[in-house]
Amino acid sequence: MATSSYPIFGSQNPRTQVALHAGLKMGQTMGMIVPPIYLLTLAVRKRPFSIRRLMNVTTTWVGIGSIGLGGLVWARMGSQSEEAIFDRCERLKYNQGQLRCDDYSIIGASLGAIVTPAILLRRAPLPTLVFGGASLGLGMGTLTHIIKSFTEGEDVRPEGMVCSLFPRPA
């Protein structure tokens, strides 16, 4: 069976591509929801704001979420046939909404990794700013894609991403 060529993970086998894609989706989700939750938690607890802590919390949760869901999808695919996994990989390859979302998030992560340390250089150690900026950028790129799609009248549904990762049994 030929290996699919999903643009981001094209050199991997289909099972790995789907697991990596799931990890990317969870990273995008965590990058969007963790910063507001962290800020809300600070406001409720009346604690002081810290750039260093925001970057650490965001990086930690994006990493945990990505590795956790990627591993969960990998384990779940163990009982599926190679044809089903290859089919899912091919559907991801040609899903323009997914590809555009991934492009926005990766561009956001790249910009976040560069711009955040440039703006906040003395507020936290450089590695913390680079990884935290990339995590924030991953979420902001995804949020930008969702807002853009919504304002252009496209059908934006959260279950669209989830269904591509966990299809219903036939």
Rank of each mutant, 00 (worst) to 15 (best):
I8G: 13
I8S: 11
I8A: 14
F9E: 02
G10F: 08
G10E: 06
S11L: 09
Q12H: 11
Q12A: 12
T16A: 00
Q17D: 08
V18N: 09
V18E: 05
A19S: 13
A19L: 03
A19N: 06
H21K: 08
G23E: 01
G23H: 04
K25Q: 05
K25D: 01
K25C: 04
M26V: 02
G27I: 00
G27L: 00
Q28W: 04
Q28A: 12
Q28N: 12
T29I: 03
M30S: 04
G31L: 02
G31F: 02
M32S: 06
P36K: 14
P36I: 10
P36F: 14
L40P: 04
L40M: 15
T41Y: 10
T41F: 12
L42N: 12
A43F: 04
A43G: 09
K46I: 08
P48M: 14
F49R: 06
F49Y: 05
R52G: 15
R52V: 14
L54K: 06
M55E: 11
M55N: 10
N56F: 05
V57N: 07
T58Y: 10
T60I: 06
T60R: 07
T60F: 06
G63A: 06
G63N: 09
G63S: 11
S66L: 01
I67L: 13
G68N: 10
G70L: 10
W74H: 15
A75K: 11
R76C: 01
R76M: 05
M77T: 04
G78Q: 09
Q80I: 03
Q80H: 07
E82S: 15
E83D: 10
E83A: 09
A84K: 07
F86N: 07
R88S: 07
R88Y: 04
R91M: 09
L92Y: 11
K93I: 04
K93F: 13
N95T: 02
N95W: 11
Q96R: 15
G97V: 01
G97M: 06
D103I: 06
Y104G: 09
S105P: 05
I107S: 08
I107F: 09
I107T: 09
I107Q: 09
G108W: 03
L111C: 03
A113H: 02
V115T: 11
T116R: 00
T116N: 00
I119Q: 14
L121P: 00
L121Q: 07
R122D: 14
R122W: 07
A124Q: 05
A124G: 02
T128G: 10
T128V: 08
T128L: 12
L129K: 11
L129C: 05
V130Q: 07
V130N: 06
S135Y: 01
G137Q: 05
L138E: 01
G139Q: 00
M140T: 02
